[in-house]
Design a protein around this nucleic acid. Structure first.
Lengths: 126, 126
DNA sequence: CTTTTTGCAAATCGTTTGCATGGAC
DNA sequence: GTCCATGCAAACGATTTGCAAAAAG
């Protein structure tokens, strides 16, 4: 893999963000630094960084791919009002794969746990 | 809401299935009974049945909408090899929303837990 | 006769891809 | 000079939508 300024910028941008930007959000921000960067390049690099384990794809059920620079096992919250994707501050249940395996005929590799409802901001407004 | 033969057939079909068909699968099967049914009608009715609580939309991270006539809280397994979506035979952790609420600033309405790996068939072949 | 639902086709949205050019090494 | 990465635009797949005609009430 060859170095690319665009990929480096995308990686750095992702590491500054605690929320979980979509490709389009990344694209919008990259345009400030690279006015000619294309959506294709953003998608390619997000996918590539995911493949080499520097990013994690987060799918919370809104149909969009979100990306997370924190690749550790942790859980997410999806606000069905404003669409925010937020990290949950709770221990991950590492043993749950083993528990589930006992009543499952196959190999469980991972799990994902996503909460949904109204985030702090939205719960106040409602 | 008015009665429609198509919607009734879709509902009945969904109740016979323990897997979690996509709109396209439903469409294919409906064509046997209604050779002229359109994809739009299938999508519209799946969405409508979901809205009135007769179906549940299941998103396991493959980018497709799966539908489930069992609307109770339960967990799913997604086989990343063959794409199968399977119900997990385990108790649902009803208290997990409350546990998560304690360290979360907002209103948690629901959670979804999805496992992934290789299903029984695929684990044998590999 | 009014209103909902249908079938069809076109539109939309997020994402992927082919290809000629430019940058990395 | 050889490859890999880019920008651009076209293609793609799943889903949604506008509309005139058909079915329900």
């Amino acid at each position: 893999m060859k170095f690319s300024r665009q990929r480096e910028a995308i990686k750095e941008f992702m590491m500054t963000r605690k929320d979980h930007p979509t490709a389009d959000t990344v694209y919008t921000h990259m345009r400030e630094e690279f006015p000619n960067i294309s959506l294709g390049t953003v998608y390619r690099n997000l996918q590539l960084l995911t493949d080499i384990g520097e990013l994690q794809k987060v799918r919370v059920g809104d149909g969009l791919d979100h990306f997370d620079a924190d690749t550790s096992l942790h859980y997410h919250f999806y606000c069905r009002q404003c669409g925010a994707v937020i990290d949950m501050d709770m221990d991950s249940i590492t043993e749950i794969n083993d528990i589930a395996s006992k009543t499952f005929d196959g190999y469980i590799e991972s799990h994902s746990l996503t909460f949904s409802g109204l985030c702090g901001r939205c719960v106040i407004r409602s």
